[in-house]
Amino acid sequence: MEKIPILKMGDFLLVTVQIDLYDRLALNLEADLVNMINKHQAKGVLIDISAVNIVDSFMGRILSNIAQMSKILDALTVVVGMQPAVAITLIELGLPMTGVRTALNVEKGMELLKRNRILDSEEEETTSTDEDDSAE
């Protein structure tokens, strides 16, 4: 059975989809990713679809599901590298990619995840100072 590998890099998970997805494969990826986020307490997921030639309504929905599930688990999902022809087709198909953050390429996607991580940790710091204040 084919499987799409998920790599862990620090706080983030990296997925590069190198083959055309069929339904079962996409569903497995969804389940694997959610488990990996939980296991590694990942804060971000980067999905590179630059080698994917078609995204139809089912796969679009899976991407959107992954984004929403990971959000509930406090991880941000960024989909990167979508081919222009795929983007044109998705819009004409009428698919709303709800809640999916995108970036042009892996580099920009990583920047986005890191920026989000810094914002998160700053927030944590302010909340912890607030707690200190109230304790005094």
């Binding site: 339904d23 030639n53 139809d56 081919q83 044109i88 004409e92 198909l93």
Partner: peptide, 17 residues
């Protein structure tokens, strides 16, 4: 062309599903 091909493939994928 690539765009038309992608559209055709996507439509085919929907129907075959």
């Amino acid at each position: 062309g690539l765009v038309n091909k992608t559209k055709l493939l996507t439509a085919a994928s929907e129907l075959v599903r």
